[in-house]
Amino acid sequence: MKARILITLKTGVLDPQGKAIQKALGSLNFDGIDGVRQGKVIEIDLAETNEVAARKQVSDMCDKLLANTVIENYDIELIPSAA
């Protein structure tokens, strides 16, 4: 099973990279952009096949290392391996 983890900055945390992207999009004449937030995606190949156990394992990984929960939120998507 594969886990795809989406890590984003919490609301209220300044995102200067997102701001710079927003400016650059504006300079390319993309109008109507109210905000840009940049995050990161981490993909992990897991031996675990049970979805509940896999989610718990990945959630522990996020709390202990992958996300800094002071400033970041994480969202876990589990993708079963193709048979």
Binding site: V13, L14, P16, Q17, A20, N68, V70, I71
Partner: peptide, 9 residues
């Protein structure tokens, strides 16, 4: 707390 990217990048 935490240390994030400098505002000026």
């Amino acid at each position: 707390g935490s240390l994030a990217r400098n505002t000026g990048l």
